[in-house]
Design a protein around this nucleic acid. Structure first.
Lengths: 225, 225
DNA sequence: ATTATAATTTAGGTAAGCCTAATTTTTATT
DNA sequence: AATAAAAATTAGGCTTACCTAAATTATAAT
């Protein structure tokens, strides 16, 4: 049963890819929530996706799912398109970084191989999207980057921002206000003992920003040695 | 029953708009062929589209369909997006004019109002697409243009190409080879009595091209006075 | 270890948008 | 005007991707 790859399927694969990035399996509920559909629908679909030839993923009852190499390639194809679109919109059409995710979410499904090639060329084969997420190259390879969570920085130590969470426009506007963006240099001023809220200083702008622990875990940095 | 406007519906409306441009009604069979689906499916869908609130079109059994003003606005919205994309791809991403129609056919459905605005601005509010078709402005208005079919030119007389048929890449490549594009100046050399095949000379390139009668009817020109 | 809770799966059902085959209506031809 | 051909419609079905409710399995808490 050779399946046609619909937009839905691409969304499933993308989400599964994200959820399993650090190993492990993606759960039904996780996916249901991320996709905005019922858990029953997810079970149904992943069962299908595990029975295509070749299968996109491995499914075991109650154990969640994991992409096959085939499924991972398919996911990376979409992710490449998504991130190329994001950086293109910012660089060439004056979008702000909080506007591009939603737009890319739609456009990624309408992007032909030719358009992908042209956009990639117009940007001279960019390596990162506006949020610092790496863009898989034409062979779908992603450079490995040494990175740590902002939360793991020690007081007084410095680092350089590598990536920020990409989906929530509110968060992005907040970060943008202080100049917290990929490439920015920061220093950890303080951390409250009780809830681990951090104060950080951004070198470029001279601003100080308050970052809660969950956000701090989603911002990646390279520590200065 | 307030309907969501799916990609399908947009395609129906676009086709109906095209078929009824010169007045009259679009027939079931015409639409079925253009959309690549069965006549039965068309009947079914146009019946639905005539019963939305407000209705997109008027339907009378065996009499074909015609867009309501509401339906026409919806159609023009898509057509505007389609043509903006076409000219953008040519101007900004190095596409040739025979590549853009198919691409725009997909992208038009994935274009947000913001993207439309940005592309329009990036091109400084273009008035025509690469084939010479007028782009409805932000208020969906189309400038009226005085134009005649190439076929109606008299021997020895001259004209300027305004628009060429836009869908068939083969035809576009053929025309492009001779320099027949919007803006090109041409002169009718001869017309065979039997089948009305024309020889025309293109001023800019000095080329001569042979144009059959059906193609000659689809190329629009402004006659030199 | 039992039991309560949470997660997942199964079963049965719906809406869109397409299909083919059969029927009806219109149009064209003699 | 009758009849043949073409066009359009109706009837009945299919697939996809979703849904809710009920049943099952796994996990966590006593």
């Amino acid at each position: 049963m050779p399946q046609k790859i619909s937009e839905n399927i691409q969304d499933y694969l993308k989400r599964i890819y994200e959820f399993t990035l650090s190993g492990g399996r993606a759960s039904t509920n996780q996916l249901a929530q991320a996709l905005g559909i019922s858990a029953a629908s997810v079970t149904n679909m992943v069962q299908k996706l595990s029975k295509t030839e070749p299968p996109y993923l491995t499914y075991e009852k109650h154990q969640g799912v994991k992409l096959t190499p085939f499924g991972e390639q398919a996911a990376l194809k979409i992710i490449r398109r998504h991130r190329l679109i994001e950086i293109y919109l910012v660089e060439k059409l004056g979008y702000t970084w909080d506007e591009v995710h939603a737009e890319a979410e739609i456009l990624e499904h309408a992007m032909s191989p030719l358009l992908e090639k042209r956009i990639d060329a117009a940007l001279d084969h960019p390596k990162f999207d506006p949020h610092g997420d790496p863009i898989p190259d034409i062979n779908l390879e992603i450079p490995e980057i040494e990175q740590t969570a902002l939360s793991s920085l020690e007081i007084g130590n410095k680092g350089r921002v590598l990536r920020v969470p990409n989906e929530d426009p509110q968060v992005l506007r907040y970060l943008g206000k202080f100049g917290i963006r990929p490439g920015a240099h920061i220093k950890l001023i303080s951390r409250t003992p009780y809830d681990q809220t951090m104060r950080i200083k951004i070198t470029e702008t001279g601003n100080e920003a308050v970052i809660g622990p969950s956000l701090g875990n989603k911002i990646s940095i390279a520590k200065d040695s």
